[in-house]
Amino acid sequence: MSGTATTTGARTEPVRAEGTFGDGALVVCDSLVRIYQSDGIEVQALQGLDLLVEEGELVAVVGASGSGKSTLLGILSGLDVPTAGRVRVGPWDLAAMTRAQRVTYRRQSVGFVWQQTARNLVPYLTAEQNVDFPQSVAGVPRRERAARTHELLGALGVADCAHRRPGQLSGGQQQRVAIAVALANSPALLLADEPTGELDTTTSAEVLEALRSVNTELGTTVLVVTHDPSVSEHVRRTVAIRDGRTSSEVLRSTRTHDDGTEHTVAEEFAVLDRAGRVQLPREYREALDLVGRVRLALEEHQVTVRSGRES
């Protein structure tokens, strides 16, 4: 990687050289690799993943089970570290943080919501106390904590649940309280791992709406990992991960027809990484029997890929 970016511990200096990959983005994943080992079996969860997320974006990450979505989220939330590659969130170099910096990062810069509703909240604390807790450990004064808690629960529509414990809340309420907990210390980035995985359609819609309002009204950058196709329909940008790499992206935009009606247009793009690699969908490969050696041809405005067995 070229450039003159300097680092102080894990915190990258905000001034970076022109041309640095991801310069200006809030989240930068550069050739990210994560390998797990379990009893001698090696699992390559991330295989050189590249991803940029700009500040203020609402991004959905989709992919098959085992594609590396949750691994990516774990790394971005500071709960896991990559085996190789570079990962940065704001000024934080997540691959080089010390233990204390990691704690500070979790307190100040990132919030997250897990799929299991029960896992997000401390069961013996009320909703209000749950939101209060991350602020307590961050040393926020009591009065500020109370105001912030009240504000967040109100913003997420669960103010009436403030004095209830998680066991007394519905699944949707629990997830909205969990979002409030994740936002307690005003993080720049909110990560959600299958936040609607345990919810019915109606409740899912409520939770997604809550996430969208967090993004639009509080300006928080949101990254949602999901299986749910309805989730990706609610966001402008959907990143697909396949075999540990970003394989494609879908960008949605609202266009106005000549008759004045608005409708959403979704465009799917393959992702060409910095090494020039691109993943071809399986159906393409199978349809054209693209396996092993292929022929590439540079043509005007396009590159063609043909089977190597063609004469």
Binding site: A100, V103, R107, R119, V122, F133, P134, V137
Partner: peptide
């Protein structure tokens, strides 16, 4: 699980 959650939420 709760201890892990505390840790994840930024507890030292």
């Amino acid at each position: 699980q709760v201890l892990e959650l505390e840790r994840a939420r930024g507890a030292s």
